[in-house]
Simulated scan of single mutants.
Amino acid sequence: MSIEIKNKVALVTGANRGIGKAIVKSFLNHGAKKVYLAVRNPESTAELEKQYGDQVVTLEADLADAASIKRLAEQAQDVDVVVNNAGVLAVSSPLDEKAEASLAYEFDINVYGLLRVAQSFAGILEGNQGALVQLNSVASIKNFADLSTYSASKAASYSLTQGLREKLGKKGVAVVSVHPGPIDTEMAAGAGFEQTDAPSSVSEAIVTALEAEEFHVFPDVMAKQFESAYQSFAENIVLADFSE
């Protein structure tokens, strides 16, 4: 189902900075009626509120807290497009002493957080015939040794996104899986990436994917290299119907 963002109501987790902030701006620039800014610290969206006024509504939310996400859904019953952008990264190789703690931390937000959002908003998105957009990563299909636990969490979230595509798709809900490479954000800087693409490369690609009914989105320079190599597997395995 093609979804044009114009006149739609959207919700973006982690909307106060980086890719999330870029998504908010792109959606509003493309005519979104309203965007909910779902963040842990409501004061962090002051700049966006000043810029966009009543086009944005800040809501407090914590992906680590299931009750918080249920409350979020109760406050955003009119939402058409949910973008689960918020995520965490702990630089950790599989041999680090902190690897187990890092994995638990990243799974709680990057994997269980996705489940909490998807389950809380499934009924709303079905009723509004909307879309769920999940920010995964190129690390979801290749493990980077110094980011091993993060890569594992994103591989798990990508797998869940595939399941959500099948289940929500039957209910008329579009699902989009976004796989950026290094993007100019605080997270990428903390991970040590020096060559990055602009967050707007991701946000604009999401707008395009929603209209084009695309599941996979590889928005930036590095991601497109993954896309060309991954395309055959994606088409013949990930997107294939094995039910027959």
Rank of each mutant, 00 (worst) to 15 (best):
Met1Val: 12
Glu4Ser: 14
Glu4Pro: 00
Asn7Val: 06
Lys8Phe: 02
Val12Trp: 02
Val12Gln: 00
Ala15Asp: 07
Asn16Trp: 08
Gly20Gln: 10
Ala22Met: 06
Leu28Arg: 14
Ala32Arg: 10
Lys34Leu: 13
Lys34Arg: 15
Leu37Ile: 07
Val39Trp: 03
Arg40Gly: 04
Asn41Asp: 15
Asn41Glu: 11
Pro42Cys: 11
Glu43Gln: 14
Ser44Phe: 03
Thr45His: 07
Thr45Glu: 08
Ala46Thr: 14
Gln51Glu: 15
Gly53His: 15
Gly53Lys: 15
Asp54Val: 14
Leu59Asn: 06
Leu59Ala: 10
Leu59His: 09
Ala61Asn: 11
Ala66Tyr: 12
Lys70Tyr: 06
Arg71Cys: 02
Ala73Glu: 11
Gln75Asn: 13
Gln77Pro: 00
Asp80Ser: 10
Val83Trp: 01
Asn84Ala: 03
Ala86Val: 01
Ala86Thr: 02
Gly87His: 04
Leu89Met: 12
Leu89Arg: 02
Ser92Arg: 09
Ser93Thr: 15
Pro94Phe: 14
Glu100Thr: 09
Glu100Gln: 11
Ser102Val: 04
Ser102Cys: 09
Leu103Cys: 13
Gly113His: 11
Leu114Gly: 10
Leu115His: 15
Arg116Asn: 14
Ala122Ile: 09
Gly123Lys: 12
Ile124His: 08
Gln129His: 15
Gly130Asp: 11
Ala131His: 08
Leu132Ser: 07
Val133Pro: 00
Val133Gly: 01
Asn136Cys: 05
Ser137Glu: 04
Asn143Ala: 08
Asp146Ile: 08
Asp146Val: 10
Leu147Pro: 00
Ser148Met: 05
Ser148Glu: 00
Thr149Ile: 01
Ser151Trp: 00
Ala152Arg: 00
Ser153Arg: 03
Tyr158Glu: 01
Ser159Arg: 12
Thr161Pro: 04
Arg165Met: 09
Glu166Arg: 15
Gly169Lys: 09
Lys171Pro: 02
Ala174Gly: 04
Ala174His: 08
Val175Ala: 03
Val176Lys: 05
Ser177Phe: 01
Ser177Lys: 06
Val178Ile: 07
Pro180Cys: 11
Thr185Ile: 06
Ala188Lys: 07
Ala189Asn: 09
Ala191Phe: 04
Ala191His: 09
Asp197Cys: 14
Asp197Ala: 15
Ala198Pro: 11
Ile206Cys: 02
Ile206Trp: 07
Ile206Pro: 01
Val207Ile: 13
Val207Phe: 00
Ala209Asn: 06
Leu210Met: 05
Glu211Trp: 05
Glu213Phe: 01
Pro219Gln: 07
Met222His: 03
Ala223Trp: 05
Phe226Ile: 11
Phe226Glu: 07
Ala229Trp: 00
Gln231Leu: 10
Ser232Phe: 02
Ser232Met: 05
Phe233Asn: 04
Asn236Met: 03
Val238Ser: 10
Leu239Gln: 13
Phe242Pro: 02
Ser243Lys: 14
